[in-house]
Design a protein around this nucleic acid. Structure first.
Lengths: 148, 148
DNA sequence: TTGTGTGCAAAGCATTTGCAATACT
DNA sequence: AGTATTGCAAATGCTTTGCACACAA
């Protein structure tokens, strides 16, 4: 399956879901969703705004945030929150480890099995787990190559 | 070993380390370190400030942040950064999972073995890992009890 | 038609920073 | 004595919010 096909499928899934829920599918929303579906780089709100303006020139910051908040609420995207850099948005809503490069800010998904079980946590700690935030900070392969 | 003994030991270790490194051990710093050593609740900067003022009444916000930054730089504490709530500070600098209650903000350490290996990550992803941020959001036992 | 969605501008707020005064070694 | 540290006040900047208008259903 080509990347564009995969993206198209994700996009379609999100649009269908929003329609079901009764959300209005405005040009701005379609555009933001299309961008997210095609972008696996965990983009910033500002990245999305910039790209969206190519086809929706007057789209505003608040619309981007409003839409992202809505998508997050519907569990269609995941927000990765930082306090010293811009938040990032991820279409991969499954529990996974993010590898975050401290040099360039790149975020990649770590694709291997995660041996962390909600069940174990609940049984051992009496804490009721909802969702994980799993990150590893370091240096990505690109930054390792380019000088030290 | 009693809690206070453990705290005293941690405190002493930090003080020794700072002395070695040539840091000045001011009243303010001693106070902040003492507070951190005794507090396993992952306190906020504001919590620390408030407690510190009992014995160092004129201590300021910037001193607290300055000291915390220094301790973090020396790997003596760990900062847990949030964008929608105050950052928290942890004397437990080992890699561990934090259980974060979404109701009351309590943060507890999950004490069991973490099956995440830096080595695996490096070998499988070509990413050079430095440190982890591992969190599980949910509801703590106290909040589960009190009503639903 | 009608209420949700949008755009603009202003606010929010923990943390950071500049600078002069202080005090530890 | 000299320099790191402190305290005060102001700045920072992404994200959020208030409000009036626009538009999808």
């Amino acid at each position: 399956m080509k990347l564009t096909d995969k993206a198209r499928k994700i996009e379609q899934g999100i649009l269908d879901r929003l329609r079901e829920k009764g959300y209005k599918l405005t040009l701005q929303r379609r555009e933001i969703i299309s961008i997210l579906a095609q972008d696996s780089s965990h983009p910033r709100a500002a990245d999305i705004l910039l790209k969206a303006r190519k086809r929706a020139p007057r789209i505003s910051v608040s619309t981007v945030y409003y839409t992202l908040a809505m998508l997050k609420k519907e569990d269609l995207i995941r927000e990765i929150e930082f306090y010293d850099m811009d938040n990032r948005y991820d279409i991969n809503v499954s529990n996974h480890l993010n590898l975050i490069c401290e040099k360039c800010g790149r975020i990649e998904d770590y694709v291997n099995e995660l041996p962390l079980s909600s069940l174990d946590i609940e049984q051992r700690s009496n804490f009721q787990p909802f969702r994980f935030r799993l990150e590893c900070y370091g240096v990505c392969s690109k930054c390792r190559k380019s000088k030290k």
